[in-house]
Design a protein around this nucleic acid. Structure first.
Lengths: 366, 366
DNA sequence: TTGTAGGCGTTATCAT
DNA sequence: ATGATAACGCCTACAA
């Protein structure tokens, strides 16, 4: 390795004071040249810029500036520690994209704060300088960071969980939206449906679950979507997927398709799970939608699927943008109400009327 | 909206001084209770914590702490403004995941700094308080932020571009790795191959490109991988995809498969492009690998593909981790050399010997 | 083990 | 339009 670094690194960095001194003006005047908050004579500004260039000064130190102004210009985003998994879902990425769009206009940065093992004290990230925090993908009803942030008076925006009166929520009415979708499937004529749920717990296995278990799910949307299905179909067989991804959706749907009577429709709690359900059906030689209908939830783009899923469009990009808007108002000191996002039903080509039932089993003659 | 916020919000937040005063100790002592850098008598610590609780004090202000210590505990990650597109590629997500892993241990946060329209002055993000910056997905050979950051003495780590002596690079030898892959395809017997390239420019269209155009590609890896192919096959037909995604890969490969003679193998510059190539072949009724061989580059997980791509494994997670390691050393003040990552060839089931050529065209008799 | 004192680099206020 | 001055909240020598 090189004997030593750039010699300039050894020299203490120039500060605004050095620049002002060299330009022959007051520090406060030099500050104005950079902030532009008050007019400065062009000649003066020029002198300051020159001095800055000579000293290798590249503008005010963001940390010092933050301290003085009381804001860091950074929004914290709490994300699952397994970022990889979360971002495999286009829903998550799309929502972040929408958020980043608003934030970009705002000139604020987005700081990823990975959740870590529960119980660590203090919760990681509590020592990071953020002006506000968003919870977009949390699957916990309570979160250790929340009391901490409330205590610090840091505004928070979420999309459902964690649940806390201090968090401004931007959400969809999951139950109602799911019920609308279920009603559509019911009207097509389906009477035997199966429901594929998100994981009830982290690290669980794909398995059938009971209504009682679902009532205790960590993730509120899991419960609410299941209720939406029940509102229309009553109790139906439910399988909770081990992960919110395609493979787990396939496994979960496969379990349902093995039941007797076999469901004629699979309602999945996310588009990715629904894709898995389509795969499971195909693997059994069943055609979608002729033999089995499949529906999802989210409304993400799946260009590689080659078909349009019947789903609820949560408008994830819009959701992200609305979170950004809420942040903007909160940072401006305004108070903000919860937002309910409209989530329209999108009919695709994965749902149709159920196959005609086999003629009332004549049974082998004799 | 509510008439007003939590009344506590109006009260200026308690500081360490208030706490010390209330606990009857010196500010510096109270500070030690939180930093733990020197021992404090248990009784004293208890008094301080009590006072803190009473005052609603939740630990030192991160900004003030940062100013004093000269570090913010935040790493900046420059990302494409179209985050959505970038994160559609599992390569990107996997690499970030690897990075986040190292950073998690380090207790530092990752701040996303979206690149914005070129030419904005000053470059956005230059006012954010970061201790170091990483460029993982940049497609520019030069970047406006680089001189700025060099000026501020902020260490940088990258994976190839932008190119600058101040940036520690963690890279793969793209040319050599691609040549190794090409050699494998050559040894299988292929003599007519087509090459699918990443976009040469942002916002371009999928189209055939010449060697001369490739030599001027923005993205160094595009050039280097093309050279790797040329090292083995000489000049081959090349098509640059409009985007680094499946659909563009399909369109690009379709162009190649329409040539006469039709290539018996398509070498794509990324796994996602290769998936598109597989789709293009299938759409033409060609079997992979019996009729057409396809190879990729990256080595990402594609569980939904249902087959294993022949590819170069860049080990993206490891790459991310190595970037994290480099950061760790830089932040510790050590000097760091560029890292070359080994990228092994992974044989999958998308490559095989070319189909036997049709018997030397007898032509219609007569 | 605890206290004293000074400053990190900036910006806001107020006066000129 | 410019200048002097006082914080912003904390941490670290150093002294006791």
């Amino acid at each position: 390795m090189p004997a030593d670094q750039d010699p300039a690194a050894r020299t203490p960095r120039a500060t605004l004071r050095d620049v002002a001194l060299r330009a022959g003006v007051a520090i406060s005047t030099a500050s104005l040249v950079y902030s532009g908050k008050k007019p400065v004579a062009p000649a003066t500004a020029e002198k300051v810029r020159e001095a800055a260039t000579e000293l290798g000064y590249h503008g005010p130190d963001p940390i010092a500036s933050s301290l003085r102004q009381g804001r860091s210009g950074v929004i914290g985003a709490v994300v699952p520690s397994r970022l990889l998994h979360a971002f495999r879902d286009p829903y998550a990425v799309t929502m972040f994209d929408g958020l980043a769009e608003t934030l970009g206009d705002l000139g604020t940065g987005l700081l990823l704060m990975p959740e870590s093992a529960p119980g660590s004290e203090p919760p990681p990230g509590s020592n990071l300088a953020v002006d506000a925090v968003v919870f977009l993908l949390s699957s916990e009803e309570a979160h250790p960071l929340v009391p901490e942030l409330v205590g610090r008076g840091i505004p928070m925006v979420g999309t459902g969980s964690p649940v806390d009166p201090h968090i401004v929520q931007v959400r969809v009415d999951d139950r109602r939206a799911t019920a609308a979708l279920a009603r559509h499937v019911h009207e097509l004529g389906h009477r035997h449906v199966g429901h594929v749920l998100m994981p009830l717990q982290p690290d669980q296995v794909t398995r059938r679950v009971t209504r009682a278990e679902v009532a205790e799910a960590t993730l509120p949307i899991t419960r609410e979507r299941a209720e939406g299905v029940r509102d229309v179909f009553g109790d139906v067989p439910m399988v909770s997927a081990a992960e919110a991804d395609i493979e787990a959706g396939r496994a979960a749907a496969d379990l349902l398709l093995g039941l007797d009577p076999r469901p004629t429709a699979i309602l999945a709690q996310s588009d990715l799970l629904a894709v898995g359900a389509v795969r499971a059906a195909e693997a059994r030689g069943l055609r979608v939608p002729e033999d089995v209908s499949v529906s999802g939830f989210d409304g993400v783009e799946l260009p590689w699927l080659g078909r349009r899923l019947t789903t609820v469009d949560q408008r994830p990009a819009e959701k992200g943008r609305l979170v950004g808007e809420a942040l903007r108002h909160l940072l401006a000191g305004e108070s903000v109400e919860d937002v309910e996002l409209d989530a329209p039903l999108r009919l695709g080509d994965t749902t149709a009327a159920p196959p005609r039932p086999a003629p009332p089993t004549p049974g082998p003659p004799g």
